[in-house]
Amino acid sequence: MHASTLSAADLPQPRAEAREDLAPAAVGRPVVVIPCSAGKRPLPDGVDELPAAQLYTGPYFAKCRAAAQAIPGGWVVIVSAEYGLITPDTPIRPYEKRLDPRAVDHDKHRAQVAAMGRALLHAPEVIALAGKDYADAAAAVWPHLLRPLAGAGIGTQLQRLTRIAAARDPRAAALAYAAQAAGR
């Protein structure tokens, strides 16, 4: 493997007592943004809506969610093409819509995050585990958003998500990929 393609997840793991390789703690809890899913679970009879995390079933969503949940203390926020910025427990109805980057209502997104609380709105660390259009939608709320998947094809994105989820320090792995994607 070429040195420029190495990531934190590829490096040898130090002994448990050597903690200097771990990313410094985030100031406050990090926000982790993931995309919605085209695949949706059929609703049971008599049920009109499900929490977003239960409704979305796509494999890309599942990988993004697993990586997001692996980041310690992270608040997960979903960019929904229909509903805007929502939490995984937000009850929603099934819909058929893909995010159109030209039609994103950034004011609505800012208002939704503000309603979730000041800590989320002013989070100093925001990590987008999402493709470009979905990360761009979130960047209107959090311009300092980090993009571990930026510039990567779908296969590489899936590999990075798997490595983030499996890393000893998933946050450090995500930050390493974001730095690599930013060309640092």
Rank of each mutant, 00 (worst) to 15 (best):
94 P>V: 09
76 V>Y: 05
28 G>R: 03
100 D>Y: 15
167 A>S: 00
55 L>Y: 00
183 G>C: 08
149 L>E: 06
171 R>Y: 05
21 D>F: 14
55 L>Q: 02
138 A>L: 03
40 K>M: 02
130 A>E: 03
5 T>W: 10
81 A>S: 12
145 L>E: 05
76 V>R: 06
4 S>E: 12
140 A>F: 04
15 R>E: 14
181 A>Y: 07
4 S>K: 12
107 D>Q: 11
25 A>Y: 01
105 D>S: 13
72 P>E: 15
92 I>S: 15
109 H>Y: 06
66 A>S: 14
161 L>D: 04
13 Q>G: 00
28 G>W: 03
126 V>S: 10
128 A>K: 01
169 D>F: 06
75 W>V: 03
133 D>K: 01
88 P>F: 13
114 A>G: 12
60 Y>P: 11
67 A>R: 11
160 R>Q: 08
172 A>N: 11
41 R>A: 12
102 R>G: 15
30 P>W: 06
21 D>C: 12
160 R>I: 15
152 A>N: 11
33 V>E: 03
181 A>I: 09
27 V>A: 14
54 Q>F: 10
119 A>E: 10
184 R>N: 08
82 E>Q: 14
6 L>D: 07
121 L>K: 10
155 G>L: 09
52 A>T: 07
133 D>A: 02
123 A>I: 02
36 C>M: 09
27 V>W: 07
63 K>S: 14
153 G>P: 14
134 Y>H: 10
157 Q>E: 08
26 A>F: 01
138 A>M: 02
24 P>D: 05
42 P>C: 03
127 I>K: 04
124 P>K: 05
139 A>I: 04
29 R>N: 13
19 R>Y: 00
1 M>E: 15
71 I>D: 08
156 T>Y: 14
